[in-house]
Write a protein that binds this DNA or RNA. Structure first.
Length: 585
DNA sequence: GCCGTTTTCGGCCCGACTGTTTTCAGTCG
């Protein structure tokens, strides 16, 4: 938890320094430190002791010293000093679109505006309009931006963002104005929650970019147009009652790769590329890679494809899922990028429910769906007895289900149907079935469904104990988080992953877009600890089976290769892996 | 504040759009 706290402090310092008009590069440096801290694979004090923190790119002496200060005293003097200079509520104002550091400072100095409600009041009573830089259109825009903030429910899930993108792209394709149209931004990087949707297109021959922007900003689904220039437009679209920002950018085909790279980001990743370009006497922008050395005018080098941009910089092409400035630029330079796991690598789905518990489909239907998806095996994992709400199976019902699955297999030679269970991890870490019954199963995923507010040590102890059971192959949705609805359990993830490695237990990557649990950072930590992943859908109906790509993308964002994921193995090999744990006990 | 195959000082990504400051600063991505 320390990392998150220190990260927040650095973020605050960046915001305050920016409002105070400090050097913007210093501000950027604090902001980068904040991000790096939030994404660290271990607690900062551990990395500090190991000496790896100071070796992290972007973390210099001054930052390390401040972190040491925090660990020692629980506070950072420079942070306290900054907090004394402006009210902390002022930082909220930066979340209003159109309010930047200069505007915030101006409104505070002139009108003592220190919060969003006060800003709203200053707009309504006309006092804001008396300030230079706050004309009528600006004030109107701010009024709308505050309304947007009040209505918006924050970031949306990946699957929701995709729905919005599909709607817009389908519309634009129907207009026959674009030659090529692609998703960019965080949606293309499979970030677990999306702020706005970015779309990139090239025009058809003889179609002016402006015509496409005009069509886009006047479409039926647009509730408000935020900006509309000759080559790019921003609009608000309503999606299940909440406004979503969609940005469209039009470029020529010769610049498509450069634009796609730029528009995909992340911002930090792209800045690293532009850095490298400068160091090589080149310049990178959304139109292409240019040579600037030995010439008065920049000379176009390349721009049509992303691969050519990366190669022009001496880098291997980087999968969009890795573009987060978490070491992928260095790996691309050293030609050591991983070959990421793909959807095609997955041979079976090991977590799904039927009508026996809380699923919507019968056992045989799920088998048919598995065959249709080309799986070599599926595992039926209905809930266990304690999950009363989910109609969990009593021991007796589970025995009957095992028999039914054994019989069923005779009729489906093309697929192995495995008898499994998603067994509850009880409050003391015991499991919800007798060991003898668990041993009868082909596969067991053990999950927490109650007591999710357990204190850190207790919750962690529950998972550690569950892993000790030789029948448990995998911990299901380990943190139990639900994006936008429920926080992750407070767990000592390092201790859990160490124990997983010791006990030969795998970690699930739950593909439900509301869960994505483990998340990408935890996946990477698991791999670093030598822990195998299993990517499952946890499907409760046919559609649920098709969400596997979200789990695969999450694991890939954690740098997972095929070798890191157990359900890329044929069933016989997977069985051997499971037997290694059972024989050790 | 960070960083170094021209540098331990002097750089630091780069362009679009908006509004209103008649030539550009602020904001955004």
């Amino acid at each position: 938890m320390t990392n998150a706290t220190v990260s927040k402090i650095f973020g605050q310092m960046a915001d305050i320094l920016e409002i105070l008009g400090e050097d913007r590069f210093r501000v950027n440096s604090y902001r980068r430190s904040a991000r790096i801290l939030a994404e660290l694979p271990s607690e900062a004090d551990q990395l500090l002791r190991a000496g790896t923190l100071s070796k992290t790119p972007g973390v210099g002496k001054a930052t390390v010293k401040k972190i040491e200060e925090y660990l020692e005293k629980g506070r950072i003097e420079a942070h306290q000093e900054l907090l004394g200079k402006i009210p902390v509520s002022l930082l909220d104002l930066l979340s209003v679109q159109g309010m930047g550091p200069k505007g915030v400072k101006n409104a505070y100095d002139q009108l003592q505006v220190t919060s969003i409600p006060e800003l709203k009041a200053a707009i309504e009573d006309g006092s804001l309009a008396t300030l230079s830089g706050f004309g009528p259109k600006k004030c109107d825009g701010l009024r709308k931006a505050i309304l947007f903030l009040e209505k918006a429910s924050g970031r949306m899930r990946l699957d929701q963002a995709r729905g919005v993108a599909d709607q817009v792209m389908t519309f634009l394709k129907e207009q026959a104005l674009v030659q090529r149209i692609e998703i960019a931004g965080s949606l293309r990087r499979w970030v677990e929650t999306i702020g706005d949707v970015d779309i990139l297109a090239t025009p058809q021959d003889d179609v002016a970019p402006q015509a496409i922007i005009d069509t886009f900003t006047r479409a039926d689904f647009v509730v408000d147009c935020l900006a509309a220039g000759p080559t790019q437009g921003s609009v608000l679209v309503h999606h299940s009652g909440t406004p979503i920002q969609v940005d469209l950018r039009i470029v020529e085909a010769s610049s498509f790769g450069a634009a796609w790279q730029y528009f995909t980001g992340s911002k930090d990743h792209t800045m690293r590329l532009r850095d490298i370009a400068l160091s090589k006497g080149m310049r990178l922008n959304e139109y292409g890679l240019y040579r600037t050395a030995d010439a008065s005018e920049p000379v176009f080098v390349t721009g049509q494809t992303e691969e050519a941009i990366y190669q022009g910089l001496g880098l291997d092409p980087v999968d969009p899922k890795l573009r987060q400035d978490r070491g992928e630029v260095e790996a691309a330079q050293a030609h050591t990028l991983p070959r990421l796991v793909t959807l095609e690598d997955i041979r079976g789905d090991l977590h799904m429910h039927t009508t026996a518990s809380d699923g919507r489909c019968e056992l045989e239907e799920m088998v048919t769906f598995g065959i249709e998806r080309g799986y070599e095996y599926i595992c039926i994992t209905d809930h266990s007895a304690s999950s009363i709400i989910a109609n969990g199976l009593s021991g007796e019902r589970l025995i009957q289900q095992i028999k039914a699955i054994r019989r069923l297999n005779e009729g489906y030679p093309e697929i192995s149907v495995l008898a499994g269970s998603e067994v509850d991890i009880l409050s003391d870490g015991r499991l919800d079935y007798e060991d003898g019954l668990l041993a009868e199963l082909d596969f067991v995923v053990a999950s927490v469904h109650s007591g999710m507010n357990n204190a850190r040590d207790r919750g962690t102890a529950r998972l550690l104990k569950a892993m000790d059971n030789p029948s448990v192959t995998c911990i299901g949705h380990p943190t139990t988080r639900m994006l936008g609805r429920r926080e992750a359990m407070d767990l000592d993830m390092i201790a859990i992953l160490r124990h997983a490695a010791e006990t030969h237990t795998a970690m699930e990557v739950n593909s439900n877009p509301m869960r994505l649990d483990l998340n990408d950072l935890h996946c990477r930590m698991a791999i670093d600890h030598g822990v195998k992943l299993i990517i499952n859908t946890d499907a409760h109906n046919e559609g649920g089976l098709d969400r596997l790509e979200y789990g695969v993308a999450t694991a890939a964002k954690g740098w997972a290769t095929k070798e890191d994921v157990l359900n890329t193995l044929p069933w016989e090999k997977l069985k051997e892996w499971m037997q290694m744990k059972q024989s050790r006990s």
